[in-house]
């Protein structure tokens, strides 16, 4: 058993027991240069949610535009979107329908509106989650937009951009071993390889802890009012995982580790070469309201 890692190994190094990667800590290139790294945008607006938690469509659409502009370092939203999508593209918007915390319809509609503005005809766009494999638009898609909420996930640590593509494979449970470590491999499948133009982690009401059969508990979501955008799904998830870890520490008063660490993020980087997982190599650009941003 030469490859056995025990509790004692973590005691020896002073690390967090059971946590195999540094997503729970470490520094981020907060606005500074990230060498050969990735860009991630955090955009927040406290007006996006009303006191009852309803989403203001216009505010959300504006946040999306501001995020895309910052990500591509452009001043004009239309120009920024045009860098991502061409009128001739066939665009699949990979959403997430999880009952408790789905991709908000308002966010899907904001993206669809932008695609219409770009001249992508309605028949060349589709929003889908569990039906992507049989969806004609996704089958012939030239571009994918990956949009989903940020949350903890019982078996993968977090549900983020990387994991959102699991519905592109016929046998999702085949990716469950070792805390879904090899989710990054899915991104090499022909249906998705090289097609993703933008990843959006919806952090309007992220979920930082979970329990129960559906791993959802209303106590453990909070109105963060944010979006996390990146062209690098690994970097977006690394930032998202960091945010959730910081929120757990704030909420519980201790660094409460997840049942399953989100090590699939690091594996996606180091094994599958999908993106950047090291926070120190991620340039985080902040846009908008930053009170209580944690990151």
């Amino acid at each position: 058993m030469s490859s056995v890692v025990t509790r004692r190994d973590f005691l020896r190094t002073g690390g967090q027991v059971g946590l195999g990667l540094a997503l729970g800590g470490g520094g981020m290139a907060l606005g500074g240069p990230a060498q050969a790294g990735a860009r991630v945008v955090l955009v927040r607006d406290k007006e996006v949610l009303d006191p009852e938690g309803r989403i203001h469509k216009r505010v959300l659409a504006s946040m999306l535009d501001e995020g895309v502009k910052a990500l591509l370092d452009l001043q004009d939203a239309s120009e920024a979107w045009a860098r991502l999508i061409q009128p001739r593209d066939v665009v699949g918007i990979k959403s997430n329908v999880w009952h408790y915390l789905p991709t908000p319809r308002e966010l899907e509609e904001a993206i669809l509106a932008r695609l219409r503005d770009l001249g992508v005809s309605q028949g060349r766009t589709s929003v889908d989650d569990r039906g992507v494999r049989s969806n004609p638009v996704f089958q012939k898609a030239t571009a994918l937009l990956n949009v989903r909420p940020l949350r903890t996930h019982f078996w993968a640590g977090i549900g983020g951009c990387i994991k959102n593509y699991i519905m592109f494979v016929p046998n999702p449970s085949a990716y469950h071993p070792d805390g879904c470590a090899d989710l990054g491999a899915i991104w090499g499948e022909p249906m998705v390889r090289g097609k993703t133009r933008l990843n959006v982690l919806c952090a309007l009401t992220p979920q930082f802890w979970g329990r129960g059969p559906h791993f959802f508990d209303r106590r453990y979501v909070w109105p963060y009012c944010g979006l996390i955008l990146s062209q690098d799904p690994v970097a977006a998830d690394a930032v998202g995982a960091r945010l959730l870890a910081l929120k757990r520490t704030q909420f519980f008063g201790e660094d409460r580790p997840l049942d399953v660490t989100p090590h699939h993020i690091e594996v996606a980087d180091r094994t599958h070469g999908l993106g950047v997982s090291e926070l120190s190599r991620i340039k985080l650009l902040r846009v908008g309201w930053m009170e209580g941003s944690l990151i």
Partner: peptide
């Protein structure tokens, strides 16, 4: 079971 719950089915 996986059709009904996302995530925790392995635990059950």
């Amino acid at each position: 079971l996986f059709d009904y719950m996302d995530g925790a089915a392995e635990l059950y």
